Amino acid sequence: MGLNVFWDNSNIWLVGRKVCEINEPGDEALFRIHFAHLFDFVVNDRNVDFAYLGGSIPPNNDDLWQRFRDLGVVVAQQERGAQSGGEIAVDEAIQLAIADRILDADEPGTIVLLTGDGNGYSEGKGFIKKLEQAIKHGWEIEVVSWDAGCNRYLRTFAEEKGVYRSLEPAYSRVSFISNKRWASKT
């Protein structure tokens, strides 16, 4: 079985802006992720069986979500809280999708998780818990994250039990600055 990619869009984008602040100070507002290049980096010429992205709206950016769909990614959009404006249940939706994939797949493969979020582990929930469950059911795991924002427990878990891949070396490939710098092809 091939890869099963689970993508926490907000985490990857928000931490990417912080990395931009270090690499290209002053351009954070124009920072963008090149989705196809990031997807190619994650996949690394391997077969993808399933891909899932969790993100929040508003903004209702149909073009953005369509770009993911064009890559073959299942897009799950969650509304933001009316009072707080914050994300509600995006991480939980991704975690449920991981659990469903673990239980529903005919045979184990590799789960690749794009996030740096390790919250909830001490309470027996969260992404690390889902990765533990995947391993228990015979799956291999990879975490792809920005070092600058990866939860230390998530990173250590991935390094000890699977693979951890840093996004910083691919910064110029997976990101661009709108109307200033385009993403490199390598």
Score class of each variant (00 low, 15 high):
Asp40Thr: 07
Glu79Pro: 13
Glu142Lys: 11
Val43His: 04
His137Cys: 11
Gln77Phe: 01
Arg80Asn: 11
Ala97Met: 06
Lys136Met: 12
Phe39Gln: 07
Glu142Asp: 09
Ala29Pro: 06
Ile88Arg: 14
Trp7Lys: 01
Phe41Asn: 05
Gly86Val: 00
Glu24Trp: 14
Glu160Ile: 02
Val163Leu: 13
Phe31Pro: 08
Asn151Phe: 07
Gly118Pro: 12
Phe68Trp: 15
Ala93Cys: 09
Gly54Glu: 04
Asp117His: 02
Glu160Asp: 13
Val42Glu: 01
Glu28Cys: 05
Pro25Val: 00
Asp70Arg: 11
Phe68Ala: 03
Asp104Trp: 04
Gly2Trp: 06
Ser172Cys: 06
Gly72Lys: 07
Ala51Arg: 06
Leu154Ile: 02
Phe35Tyr: 14
Val90Glu: 04
Gly162Cys: 08
Ala105Pro: 07
Pro108Val: 12
Thr186Glu: 14
Val174Tyr: 00
Gly81Phe: 11
Gly85Glu: 07
Pro108Thr: 10
Arg181Leu: 15
Asn119His: 12
Leu154Val: 03
Gly86Asp: 06
Tyr121Gln: 01
Ser184Lys: 05
Leu114Ser: 00
Ser175Ile: 04
Glu92Arg: 13
Arg152Trp: 08
Glu28Gln: 15
Lys129Gln: 14
Val90Gln: 08
Lys161Phe: 09
Val163Gly: 00
Trp139Asp: 07
Lys161Cys: 08
Arg155Met: 14
Tyr153Cys: 02
Trp13Pro: 00
Lys129His: 13
Ala148Val: 04
Ile102Tyr: 02
Phe127Trp: 04
Gln133His: 03
Leu131Val: 03
Gly86Arg: 13
Glu28Asn: 04
Pro25Ser: 05
Leu38Asp: 05
Asp27Lys: 13
Phe176Leu: 12
Gln83Phe: 11
Asn23Thr: 03
Val73Trp: 08
His34Cys: 13
Gly54His: 06
Lys129Gly: 00
Ala99Gly: 09
Ala148Cys: 03
Tyr52Val: 12
Gly162Met: 07
Ala148Gly: 03
Asp91His: 05
Glu24Gln: 10
Lys180His: 12
Ala134Asn: 05
Glu79Leu: 12
Glu159Gly: 06
Thr115Phe: 10
Trp139Lys: 09
Leu113Cys: 06
Glu28Lys: 14
Val5Arg: 01
Asn151Trp: 07
Val42Ile: 15
Ser84Asn: 10
Pro59Arg: 11
Tyr121Lys: 02
Ile94His: 07
Ala89Met: 13
Pro25Ile: 00
Ala97Asn: 08
Asp27Val: 01
Ala183Lys: 01
Ile88Tyr: 00
Leu103Tyr: 13
Ile33Lys: 04
Val42Asp: 02
Arg80Gln: 09
Ala76Met: 09
Ala183Phe: 03
Arg46Cys: 06
Ile111Pro: 04
Phe127Gly: 04
His137Pro: 01
Gly26Cys: 06
Lys161Glu: 11
Ile33Asp: 08
Asp40Phe: 03
Ala99Lys: 07
Gln133Gly: 11
Ser178Trp: 11
Glu92Met: 15
Tyr52Gly: 00
Gly85Met: 04
His34Ala: 12
Trp13Ser: 03
Tyr171Asn: 08
Trp146Asn: 10
Asp106Met: 03
Tyr153Asn: 15
Tyr153Glu: 14
Arg173Ser: 04
